[in-house]
Design a protein around this nucleic acid. Structure first.
Lengths: 206, 206
DNA sequence: CGATGTCTTGAACCACCTCAAGCCCGGTGG
DNA sequence: CCACCGGGCTTGAGGTGGTTCAAGACATCG
């Protein structure tokens, strides 16, 4: 699937569950006035659009940020798989519980941190989640397929202010984000600015 | 369990899953400087602290806001139940998916709405979720066991500002919140102020 | 080599915060 | 039954972090 395409949209009733095999997807919600909040960045391995029992509508959308490969599993099939293999249902529940945890942390960032800390936190989160996929890779540089506007939508800021924050982070030689490439110059200070306590940070680095 | 007690805390490894039978519980996270974000209000029927597969630590805490009754289910037992009854695992997954959806909406509120809309949204959410438990009850009044400080922690505002917002909402004859009793004076305008589109609002009122 | 989306920077403004003081109300003990 | 105490609520005045509006520079792509 090409860049920019929506995998599913607000208001649809989920008849399938999506498994992201490769690429990045933004999960977002919209307000009537067009303002947007990106609530999650789905990375490979993510499971999306798990149906609620009463068949309620999905309240968010999913947009491909890169070329994307997904496997689509119809609900009917999901039901039989869960029936056959209890191991799978445990794993699904675990993954959803993990997603809730990530969402709560993200919410805390938006609700209680300064702009500088929010941006730092997001970059740190994306970096660690990305690296978790290729363990052993210790290069402090990666491609993040996001515009500053999308970073703003994820952190609850305007893109203008995201730009200013990124400038100061660059000036302070903490991170360098330019045209979708992220270089982490000073991991320790990034962790400090993000307001993550040292212990938690270490556990992120597995 | 008495008011104020923590059911579990940040950093523990979940050996059990909690099922809330009666009362209100606040799920919250803390920053090092003591600032707090309430990420969810658990109402009766809620399931809390579902373990992640790799046995990671819980990243949030749960505090009783009222007298509370919970049933504690050890993980080992959960495993066997899920194995025996595939129906249960479907329901668990659905409930977690629902929680994710609620979390995303809450996040959108904090990230993109004004203080006035955030408070209105929270009151509306609590009211509808509360009423969903006693269907057919159409009284527009309820007890909300929250201080203004806790409302602030949930909306990402200071309690001082929450107070000002509540004053204007009262002056505008939209809601009246006084000493933990909420009275909704003008549901339509509350929905409008909360920035919820009419269609979604109707589906909340099922 | 123009066209379009993204980034950058400045200046003015305002929503929300901080600090601070006083009040209300319920609970407790004398 | 009153005095006191403490937690929560209310209100004011002043400060600031982030927004808004606007204009220009920079990339990337047909």
């Amino acid at each position: 699937m090409p860049v920019g395409r929506d995998l599913f949209r607000f208001g649809e009733t989920s008849k399938s569950i999506f498994n992201l095999l490769s690429g990045w997807v933004a999960i977002y919600t919209l307000l009537e006035d067009g303002r947007r909040q990106i609530v999650h960045f789905a990375l490979p391995g993510a499971v999306m659009a798990v149906p609620t029992s009463n068949g309620a509508k999905i309240s968010y959308g999913a947009q491909a940020l890169t070329e994307v490969v997904v496997s689509v599993i119809p609900n009917t099939m999901l039901t039989t798989v869960l029936k056959d293999d209890p191991e799978v249902s445990m794993r699904l529940a675990s993954r959803l519980a993990r997603d809730i945890s990530v969402a709560y942390d993200h919410m805390t960032s938006i609700g209680r941190r300064t702009a500088r800390a929010r941006v730092a936190y997001l970059l740190l989160e994306l970096f660690t989640r990305h690296r978790a996929q290729w363990p052993g890779n210790h290069i402090e540089e990666m491609a993040i397929p996001l515009t500053q506007e999308q970073i703003g939508d994820a952190t609850g800021l305007t893109f203008v202010h995201v730009n200013r924050v990124l400038s100061t982070l660059r000036k302070d030689k903490i991170v360098h984000f330019h045209y979708r490439r992220l270089r982490i110059l000073d991991p320790d200070r990034l962790i400090e600015v993000a307001g993550v306590d040292a212990q938690t940070a270490m556990s992120w680095f597995e």
